[in-house]
Computed example of a mutant assay.
Amino acid sequence: MDMTSNDRKPPTETATDGYPVTVDLPSVRRLEAVGFRAWPAASVQYDGSWLIRLTAGHPSKRLNSVNPLDPSDYRDIAVRLEKAGRRFAELDRPLTVRQTPLTPPQMIAYMDEQGWTSFAHSLVLALDLAERDFGEGIDHLPIKDVGRFVDARILIGGEAAETKPALSEIINAIKPECGLFLFEDRKIGPTAVSLVVHDNDLAGIMQFAVAEAVRRQGVGRALLDASLRWARLKGAKKAWLQVEAANEPAVALYRDAGFTEVYRYLYRAPKV
């Protein structure tokens, strides 16, 4: 899918490793770039075209991973991975590589030969906002209170309270404009949250979560519609998001809303 010109048909065939046979690499590169801006790591270092992201205070895999960005950059793979591993160890993080269509095939072959595990297979989906009819106006406005949003996200996601300072810091570090959406019920409290990052003509849907008590009741769809409506009113032409492939209810929600696959990625770690 070309994110800057006319849409191209998304991949429909799938390789044995789960990746689409054909992907549009310029679209992958652009979505990777906006994804990094939408979820900034505390520490960013480059080794050639490998982007090494580390965040001591938060366990997010996206914030603690090696991200190869050029399929042709495969020199000294073993040495560079060992060097990256030392950086991760300094922060007590396991060495993790985020494998995308930009990962050199030689690096993938090396990890395969060394018995690296794979986990958290994920999809990157996109939606042309011009194709959706949201009606006039906006029925839910984003809130301004980052602390309140973070408290709700931690509660709904069942995350450790200790992650609040780091999550607050991450959100405050996002440079593009953000919309913090929070749905609440008078009896049970927070029911759903989403973070929308508006970056030029793109809008990323982040931190999307619905409380278990209200799932399958239309809350997720209402939250998604509110998030997308705000993004379009801000001028975004396309929306994108990342979701684990194993999260079938979420994938079904997004596909039903019209999102289509652009590419896939997964995480790799050395065998213990």
Rank of each mutant, 00 (worst) to 15 (best):
L167D: 10
V146Q: 04
A152F: 01
F134G: 05
W116A: 04
P165I: 09
P249V: 04
V28C: 06
G158Y: 08
L180C: 00
R232K: 15
A213W: 02
W230D: 07
I143A: 01
K234Y: 12
L167W: 02
A33H: 03
E136M: 13
E131Q: 13
A245Y: 02
P26H: 06
R221V: 04
Y254R: 03
P10K: 09
Q242V: 08
A209C: 01
A257E: 10
R132V: 14
W230S: 00
E136N: 10
E184N: 01
S27F: 09
P105Y: 06
L63G: 02
P11F: 05
M3A: 08
G220S: 11
S168A: 02
D145V: 06
E177G: 01
S168Q: 13
Y46D: 12
L233V: 03
P20F: 11
K187W: 03
P190F: 03
G235M: 09
S72C: 06
H140R: 15
Q242A: 11
T260L: 11
R87P: 02
L266A: 13
A38H: 04
D76M: 00
A161F: 04
Y263M: 10
L81N: 05
G179S: 01
V28R: 10
R62K: 11
A246R: 05
D17L: 02
A173T: 06
Q114F: 05
L233W: 02
P190H: 04
V21N: 05
R37D: 14
L241E: 08
G85V: 07
R87L: 14
P59V: 07
R148F: 08
R30T: 14
A252T: 15
G135H: 10
D225C: 05
I52D: 03
S43V: 15
F259I: 04
V44T: 04
L241R: 10
T191V: 14
T103M: 05
M206H: 11
